[in-house]
Design a protein around this nucleic acid. Structure first.
Lengths: 340, 340
DNA sequence: ATAGCATGTGGTAACGGTTCCAGTTTTGTA
DNA sequence: TACAAAACTGGAACCGTTACCACATGCTAT
């Protein structure tokens, strides 16, 4: 790279000291109008841009946040990233992006990198492992915000998520109200909050209607891989198979749909289906899917807000839990169970 | 943030000079085994991590690349980002992510930020505008790689893309071979290479079979917005409407599909359809779509390879153009035209 | 023995900004 | 007209690294 102009070059050209240039740049302290004009002109002529690294070194206020997501190939995280980047821009924050691919080892590696304080805060979707590493980060007083999911046993970190219990209860209730009694539930791993909380919502809905719970109908599966298909197959092979299923594991929705299509299970005739997370393709599928829509823009907004505020120490130290409501969208993949 | 240990703290604790610590860290220059061990121990005990900004300031070799994408809500770019991040990690590069939302103004803003040399190179999908800003970047000798699309009149930058002409010709030829004579073509803007090159491929296929070209059947639309739907409606309203359409504008595929569904156009009975870019949802749609699949992992691999090599000046200055072949996937959205 | 050379080691000047502080000018007011 | 207050300015220390250089050693080859 060509050697670019430095602040000293600008100062020399404008016939002032570097202090003046710096003050013009950051609008800190007074500068005579005439000199300001000269400085501005010099900056323009030289095409000068302050070097981010140098600035970050001297003032201890990084303008960068780390975004550690599970998997960008999943539209949910992709759209989340999109919104986070947009929100960050409006606050003049840079986003450095990393992905875990749901792999604790990759996550650890990423967390290690984050530790070099190249970022002033982190927004992330934890895999569920590496508790001690997240903890180390938080103990360095680096602002950490979990979005969508969280992990237990980690105080000090803020959490932004949807109302998982509520949403799962609504989805389950919707099916119960239509007469379903055997309802399958496929959440993510139970050591993530999205997994355990949604199961709680499912169970609450059942309890409220006095419907008995069947262990075999609740089948947590990892986000990664194809186990959603196996689990569906197992449930459908039961003596008394479910007449409806809630896929509360965003990453497995596609897998489940493909498996059902291949098995020629007709929706909603053979099976009613509610899925977690709506994405633009959901409505193009036949039949259009009844879904819980997560307000991604709100998740992004609050996450960025929180790290940003923490980075400027504008918040009391006690951790925040922001929960936003999700929207239930009834489409055509749910119906009353087939009688007989 | 808590004040973290510096290299001097480590040096003091290990009873050596900072030079030794630095040498241990970067494996530059000799260090006695005993001292190396002490240093390593001190680093461990203090949880020391070298500060990225300081490192970047002294040695002029940033370990960060900028990734400037159009729109992460588009699965194509999302998956591209996913692969780029993965490739970058294996080369120990950080990725800072920005999006243009196809808006030249946002792009300009992003380019301005990039000029502060916080990154050592850029991988991007240009909107088609801001030629002079891209140029300024390249003139700073910052490595720039365009991926997927490029813009004309910009030498000095590397380009990684699929074989656009070939792919469009194949898609068009496939339809011609099935007997279609009036084939609609919906590319992106003609000032991007994806737009103009794919039109060339379309025209070549027509010419090769001696089929006349009809202006009204080639309808470029912006990536952003919903104009894909309008344009489809216009074509279908022609006296002699097309019997097949190639949607060569990845971002508009969804819009077109929704419009066709709403208009109750039956595929492939009323209209055959080939779309550019395959994504995991394409096969879940009824009918499964015939598509041109872009080898996203290859695009990512070569892009990262190129910036990385350029950052280390491992490449002759002349710009490279890497073109990878795309795969044509015949599914069920194409058939012979209805006779009569 | 002694020059020559690899191997280790520590001191210190960059890198390019910001910020504090002490001086100098301008302005305002009695 | 005098003098304090306010506005402005530049020098220099500092942020945390790396890289260059000078200097010790211990060893080998003449």
């Amino acid at each position: 790279m060509k050697k670019a102009a430095t602040i000293r070059d600008v100062a020399a050209r404008a016939g002032v000291s570097v202090s003046v240039v710096s003050r013009v740049l950051n609008d800190t302290g007074p500068v005579a109008p005439a000199k300001r004009a000269q400085v501005l002109e010099a900056i323009e002529e030289l095409g000068y841009r302050p070097k981010a690294a140098a600035r970050q070194l001297s003032q201890d206020r990084p303008d960068t946040v780390g975004l550690l997501l599970a998997d960008l190939a999943n539209p949910f995280f992709a759209r989340l990233a999109d919104r986070v980047v947009a929100e960050a821009r409006s606050r003049e924050l840079q986003v450095v992006l990393m992905t875990t691919q749901e792999d604790p080892h990759l996550e650890e590696q990423a967390l290690r990198t984050l530790l070099d304080r190249s970022v002033g805060g982190v927004i992330g979707t934890p895999t569920g492992h590496n508790v001690e590493h997240w903890d180390k980060l938080a103990n360095l007083e680096m602002p950490v915000v979990f979005v969508d999911r969280a992990i237990e046993g980690l105080d000090q970190v803020d959490v932004v998520s949807i109302e998982n219990v509520e949403s799962a209860a609504t989805a389950t209730g919707h099916l119960l109200d239509r007469g379903h009694r055997r309802i399958g539930f496929v959440p993510g791993p139970l050591d993530t909050t999205t997994g355990s909380e949604r199961v709680r919502g499912y169970e609450r809905a059942l309890a409220e209607r006095g419907v008995a719970r069947d262990e075999r109908l609740v089948r947590p599966v990892p986000f990664r891989g194809e186990s959603g298909a196996d689990v569906m197959a197992q449930m459908l092979a039961l003596d008394e198979p479910p007449t409806a299923v809630v896929v509360a594991n965003t990453a497995q929705v596609r897998v489940v749909l493909r498996m059902l299509a291949q098995s020629r299970v007709s929706i909603p005739d053979d099976l009613s289906l509610v899925v977690f997370d709506d994405n633009p393709w959901t409505e193009l599928i036949r039949p259009p899917l009844t879904a819980v829509r997560q307000p991604i823009d709100m998740l992004a907004l609050h996450s960025v807000d929180l790290v940003h505020a923490r980075m400027r120490q504008k918040l009391p130290p006690s951790p925040r839990r922001v929960r936003v409501a999700a929207e239930f969208l009834e489409r055509s993949s749910t119906a009353a169970p087939r009688t007989g």
